[in-house]
Structures are given as structure tokens and as C-alpha cells.
């Protein structure tokens, strides 16, 4: 049999080079998408800020966008003060976090420290199901069951509750983000070295004392990261607020009143009849930019914290 000739000098493989190039292009796509988001929003928002000043947008207390009646009337087409929307978003997200942070964290603690392997195997996927249910389903449930229930219970105590209260939307949103907090916190708690657990128990601490005074403090950075990610998800959540929170731009801190949010307004502004390049339509992109920037900052901080934490115990 003839020996195969082997040359030790490199053979050119143009096809492989091309292939690698294509693959690298695909990975750069992520950057293009981010860039696309930023550019498209900045571009449209820029046009908006030609009509409405940035200060009016960021600090104005009244939100009532209207389509211009005449073409030359653009500047005066309603008022675009985003403060009521920002306040509404924060109100609903805060309610959601008030529900999700303790319940998510305590569930994570129970699952990682107390539950037997069997209970864990059942409960964990069930909890994660909560995150897998589409938000439109939560929105429907919030509007159909939770809001009327809160209105009715409020009535029992003589409280005036709006039919689209911030409380209903926030509560349901809170349940939706529980698994975000619980599964990430669960990971974080499991990463706390068991030597710390043994040290505390060896000193005669009860399990609860060990958890409260040693495990949770050691895991605080990771837990904070999970809270931030959940808050970011709450701020960006759209369908629940569109369906259950309504469009009334009230500036209030009362959870029993109706408020609106940044995301709900974006949907309202861009559905139905729209004329392009009107202040009303463009304001949606200004709101989008605000939303994107806020969630981006929250996400980056959260990921930094979580990564730092992971390195600490690696």
C-alpha cells in the first residue's frame, strides 16, 4: 500500500477561513441588535425632543398626548410630562417587589435549606411554571379575578378601590416574578460553602439562626442581584399593566387608585390610528429609550454583582 503523502507545511483552506468569518459575523449580530435598539430609539426620540424639551418630558407633571389637529400645530399637541408614568411604573413595580422579594427569598431558603430532595424535585419545576406562563394570561387573570376581588374586599372595609387599581396589577406581577428571585437566590444560597453552615450548627445555632445570621448575610450580594433583575423585569413588564392597570395618568402613591405605566403608554400610543412623526407617536420612542436605559443599567449592575459574588466562592 502506498503511503499517504504528508506535508508539514500549512495548506491554505479558504473555505474554513470563510466559515470562521461567517460564524464571527453571527456573534457580532448581538452587538448590532443592541446598536439597532439604541440607534432607532435615539433617532426617533431625537425628533421628539425637537418638539418637546427634555426637561418638560422628564419633569413635567402632566401626561395627555393628543394628535395635532392641524399640521402646523405640532408643538402644542398635548402635554408630555412623563412623571406620572414613571411614578406609576415605580408604584406598580414596588408593589410587585414587596410581594416577590420576601416570598421569593423565603421560598428559595426553604427549598435550599429545609426541603427534602423529593419535595425540591416537585416544587422547583412548579414554581418555575409561574415564570413560564405568558404574561397575557396573568393580565387576564388580574383583570378578571384579582382586581374585582380587591375592589370587593376593599369595599368591605369601606375603601374606595378603582376597578383598575395599581394594587391588582402589582400583586399579580409580583407573583409572576417570584420564580425569578427564588431560582436565582436558590443558586446563590447553594453556593455558600457548607463549611459555614457546619461552623454555625457546630456552635449550637438552630437552622433558622444559621440561615438568618450566617447564610443569608454571606449571600447578600447575590440576593441583591436577583432582586435587581426581578425589578428590571417588573419595570419592563407590559401585558399585565396594559390589561389590568389602565391608561389613566394619575400622579398618586395610593395603590388603590388607577395609574398607568411607561410600557402601557407605549402600547396605547402605537396601537390604533397613528400619524408618523407626530409628537404623540414619537413620544413612545422617548418612553422606550427611557425604559431601555433604566433596565439596561439595572441589568448591568445586577450581573456585575452576581458575577463578583460567584468569583468569591469559586
Amino acid at each position: 500500500m502506498a503511503q499517504r503523502e504528508i506535508s508539514l507545511t500549512g495548506r491554505k483552506r479558504p473555505l474554513e477561513t470563510l466559515l470562521k468569518l461567517t460564524l464571527n459575523l453571527a456573534s457580532v449580530l448581538a452587538i448590532f441588535v443592541t446598536l439597532g435598539i439604541v440607534l432607532s430609539m435615539v433617532f426617533e426620540a431625537w425628533k421628539f425632543f425637537q418638539m418637546v424639551s427634555v426637561t418638560e418630558f422628564l419633569f413635567g407633571l402632566e401626561w395627555s398626548p393628543q394628535t395635532a389637529i392641524r399640521a402646523d400645530q405640532v408643538g402644542s399637541s398635548g402635554s408630555f410630562g412623563a412623571v406620572p408614568l414613571i411614578a406609576g411604573t415605580l408604584l406598580i413595580s414596588s408593589i410587585a417587589m414587596v410581594v416577590a422579594a420576601p416570598i421569593g427569598l423565603i421560598s428559595a431558603i426553604y427549598l435550599s435549606e429545609y426541603a427534602s430532595a423529593r419535595v425540591r424535585a416537585w416544587v422547583k419545576p412548579l414554581l418555575e411554571m409561574l415564570a413560564g406562563i405568558p404574561s397575557v394570561v396573568y393580565g387576564f387573570f388580574a383583570a378578571l379575578v384579582v382586581a374585582p376581588f380587591i375592589r370587593m374586599s376593599g369595599g368591605q372595609f369601606g375603601l374606595e378601590v378603582a376597578s383598575e387599581s395599581a394594587l391588582a396589577a402589582g400583586l399579580v406581577m409580583g407573583v409572576m416574578i417570584i420564580p425569578l428571585i427564588s431560582s436565582l437566590s436558590d443558586d446563590v444560597l447553594n453556593a455558600v460553602p457548607s463549611s459555614l453552615r457546619e461552623a454555625s450548627l457546630g456552635l449550637g445555632a438552630t437552622q433558622a439562626e444559621t440561615i438568618k445570621k450566617v447564610i443569608v448575610p454571606a449571600a447578600i450580594p447575590g440576593i441583591a442581584g436577583s432582586f435587581l433583575l426581578a425589578a428590571s423585569a417588573a419595570i419592563g413588564e407590559t401585558m399585565i399593566v396594559v390589561m389590568a392597570a389602565g391608561l389613566a395618568a394619575n400622579l398618586t402613591a395610593n395603590p388603590l387608585e388607577a395609574v398607568t405605566t411607561v410600557t402601557a403608554q407605549i402600547v396605547a400610543l402605537l396601537t390604533g390610528d397613528q400619524e408618523f412623526d407626530s409628537a404623540k407617536t414619537l413620544s413612545a420612542f422617548a418612553l422606550g429609550l427611557l425604559l431601555f436605559a433604566t433596565t439596561l443599567i439595572l441589568n448591568i449592575i445586577a450581573m456585575r454583582i452576581v458575577n463578583k459574588y460567584r468569583e468569591q466562592y469559586d
Binding site: P193, S195, L196, E198, A199, S200, G202, V214, P217, A218
Partner: peptide, 9 residues
């Protein structure tokens, strides 16, 4: 214990 395990405090 085998490995020193002070609390992170």
C-alpha cells in the same frame, strides 16, 4: 473543622 471556616464577618 479541618479547614478554617471563619464567618465572613
Amino acid at each position: 473543622f479541618q479547614k478554617p471556616n471563619p464567618f465572613p464577618k
